[in-house]
Design a protein around this nucleic acid. Structure first.
Length: 507
RNA sequence: GGUCCCUUCGUCUAGCGGUCUAGGACGUCGCCCUUUCACGGCGAAAACACGGGUUCGAUUCCCGUAGGGAUCACCA
């Protein structure tokens, strides 16, 4: 039995579900009689967790939960030059934000290099692998020749059957893969896919410096972790055939495969920075999206359950299956994501939203929001959240409540004031100042009475007032806002507007 | 280029031989609600890539074509 090691000085392993021990999964399965489903998400920390990776993680997570199995996390950090600590931290952070809780400890692939090399040597010993002394230059020349002859570029097996090994010369270890026949993978998403063995060459298992290649590491780790279902991007579909050859050479249990289509940009091309290939952290920090919205959108991208659009985590766990995953690449649509986010925003708890926008509001205000500010925000949230599709807009739209007088006035509001019926604002001010009931219905009645007296529509009174009170031409219900902010503040803001108009009228 | 995969409204999808004059959602447009903007409600335009088969009958099955994608490292 071997241990899955985490580097002692690695990043803090955020481990929400580590109540599960790291008992050898194979043993677990035997004890249970049947094979318990085990999936894994295996990002390489060479960049941040992007949206495609998040979806792969979601599918693995959902599939495992649906079957009551384990969802494991493995960091593929064997590329020492490109793997970074910040990237690892961002991946764990992103997964945590999305609430994709994994089981057991995080497996760091690099830490298992000795185990990988061991497998390569076992293969060497039992004749399923061989030493190849071809130099990189030699291989490059080989490919150049193949290219020139319009032949497929493949390793030609020149060391496959040799044993006249030069002493101490650098060499790699290659898998001695079958050369005839074919392999069929019954992919859970793509269906049966067959490739002739003649199309596959002998892949490198161990580099000349003794380090394992990705192909070796993945297969060994998946096996050791007891992974039963490999769910990953379909850019790995071709790899699956060579990995299967390795699995068979070792006589290991073959996992089921599910290769899910990649996500494309709005223009149908591969997702790039241009159109949404942001790290999931940026979806949170810059776009102001809610994790449940991102999850729901990702789930519906390439998968459907009848006409259902909004699917809760619980329903997703109950309904998710691989056969429902579409086989063509789906395009990323920011508009729809925003719309889904708007839906979840309206569902979200007011206190939660208040807490989420507080930092942004504070930054815009240039001061720490006070308890009173937060109280106003929370009580206004029900109205505010109907008008926003993301947290940024939500924060911005709430600012007018909290700004100190005189509040800034946008162009549309200024225009509203300039074109208001002469004296209407002053008359409204007088009426409000005289009233003794500062409730929304009472304020509205006063405004209506005023409009009737002036023989104008309510809008003629309400719009200039709205400009004075909110500094904008659109806002939540005017009288609710007035009631919320109180008599002194409102009369003060009207006075500010009156003064501004007076100054504007002077030459 | 070789190999492999994919193809329903602009986009995400429902459809798994007849229920399709093809349904839902986003987006777009119109109307309603209304103190503004939203929310909400109602409605409209909008798709089975093309060509052959199979079948009594194809959006659904098969084969081509076109288009798109993935992959061909001592990278993961």
């Amino acid at each position: 039995m071997l241990l899955l090691v985490s580097p002692a000085n690695g990043p803090a392993t955020h481990c929400p579900r580590n109540h599960l021990t790291t008992l050898e999964p194979q043993l677990d399965n035997k004890l249970m009689g049947a094979s318990k489903v085990v999936t894994r998400f295996a990002p390489s920390p060479t960049g941040f967790l992007h949206i495609g990776g998040a979806r792969t993680a979601l599918f693995n997570f959902l599939f495992a939960r649906h079957h009551g199995g384990d969802f494991r996390l493995r960091i593929e950090d064997t590329d020492r030059a490109r793997s970074t600590e910040p990237a690892i931290a961002a991946i764990l952070d992103g997964l945590g934000w999305l609430n994709f809780d994994w089981d057991g400890e995080v497996v760091y692939q690099f830490a298992r290099a000795a185990r990988h090399a061991d497998v390569a040597h076992q293969l060497l010993a039992n004749g399923h692998a061989y030493r190849c002394y071809a130099t990189p230059e030699e291989l490059e020349a080989m490919r150049a020749a193949q290219r020139a002859a319009k032949q497929p570029m493949r390793y030609d097996g020149r060391w496959r059957d040799r044993s006249d090994w030069p002493n101490d010369a650098p060499h790699v270890i290659r898998l001695k893969a079958p050369q005839t026949g074919s392999v069929t993978i019954d992919d859970l998403v793509q269906g049966p896919v067959t490739v002739a063995n003649a199309e596959l060459d002998d892949m490198v298992l161990l580099r000349s410096d003794g380090t394992p290649t990705y192909m070796l590491a993945v297969v060994v780790d998946d096996h050791d972790m007891g992974v039963t279902h490999v769910i990953r991007g379909d850019d790995h579909l071709n790899n699956a055939f060579r990995q299967l050859a390795l699995i068979r050479a070792m006589g290991w249990q073959e996992p089921a495969y599910a290769h899910i289509p990649l996500i494309h940009g709005a223009d149908g091309a591969k997702l790039s920075k241009r159109h949404g290939a942001l790290g999931v952290n940026e979806y949170r920090d810059q776009l102001g999206l809610l994790p449940e919205a991102v999850e729901n959108y990702l789930l519906r991208l390439g998968w459907g359950h009848g006409d259902d659009e909004f699917i809760s985590r619980e329903q997703a766990v109950e309904w998710f299956d691989l056969s429902g995953v579409g086989r063509g690449p789906a395009r990323f649509d920011m508009k729809k994501l925003e719309s889904v986010n708007g839906h979840y925003l309206r569902q979200a708890d007011d206190a939660r939203l208040t807490a989420l926008i507080a930092p942004g509001v504070g930054a815009a205000l240039g001061r720490e929001p006070t308890a009173r500010d937060l109280d106003i925000l929370q009580r206004s949230m029900a109205e505010l959240k109907k008008r926003a599709n993301n947290l940024n807009d939500l924060a911005t739209s709430s600012l007018f409540y909290l700004r100190s007088r005189p509040i800034p006035m946008d162009d549309a509001a200024a225009k509203l004031l300039a074109s208001a019926a002469p004296g209407i604002l002053a008359r409204a001010r007088t009426a409000f100042a005289q009233g003794d009931d500062w409730s929304a219905p009472a304020l509205e009645n006063q405004a209506r009475a005023l409009a009737d007296a002036a023989a104008v529509k309510l809008g003629q009174v309400a719009q200039p007032l709205r400009a004075a009170v909110t500094g904008a031409a659109q806002s939540p219900g005017l009288f609710d806002v007035m009631a919320m902010l109180g008599r002194d503040e409102i009369l003060g803001r009207i006075d500010d507007a009156l003064q501004m108009m007076e100054e504007g009228a002077k030459p």
